[in-house]
């Protein structure tokens, strides 16, 4: 797959998350890191049909968002079905990098580093 196509697909997934999800916008950087990693990792695992940890309350909470996200992706983006697992992993890593950038490293939100809630 070309880099451009991958980018274009990541952009679509980013748009989906931004329009429909709230989990990526917790108020502090450390929570956003935790949320992004937890949910996007599990989403990747679901899409790749890998086992997913969902037994602790925290894992379970990430998992429910991941299940809905994976379903949403599959419904809205049929091109996902044509991708193999290796490609999906690359796609999802790219997605996570982009979401991390938009919500953490590139975020202009000055409250992300406030030490207390």
């Amino acid at each position: 797959m070309t880099e451009d196509l991958m980018k274009e697909r990541i952009a679509q997934l980013v748009d989906y998350i931004m329009k429909k999800c709230l989990w990526q916008f917790h108020s502090r950087a450390w929570d956003r890191e935790r949320q992004n990693a937890g949910i996007l990792t599990k989403t990747m695992q679901i899409l790749c049909e890998e086992p997913v940890e969902n037994q602790t309350p925290a894992d379970r909470c990430y998992w429910v968002d991941a299940v809905c996200l994976a379903d949403g992706f599959r419904q809205k983006y049929p091109w996902l079905d044509s991708m193999d697992k290796a490609e999906i992993k690359i796609l999802m890593q790219g997605l996570k990098d982009r979401i991390d950038f938009l919500t953490i490293t590139g975020s202009l939100n000055e409250e992300l580093t406030v030490p207390l809630y």
Partner: peptide, 22 residues
């Protein structure tokens, strides 16, 4: 979340209760 995320965040830290935004 604007008015009440604080208590959810604190409950998560103190009691481990996860926060699900809906």
């Amino acid at each position: 979340a604007r008015s009440a995320e604080y208590i959810c965040n604190e409950l998560r830290v103190k009691y481990g209760t996860p926060r699900l935004d809906i």
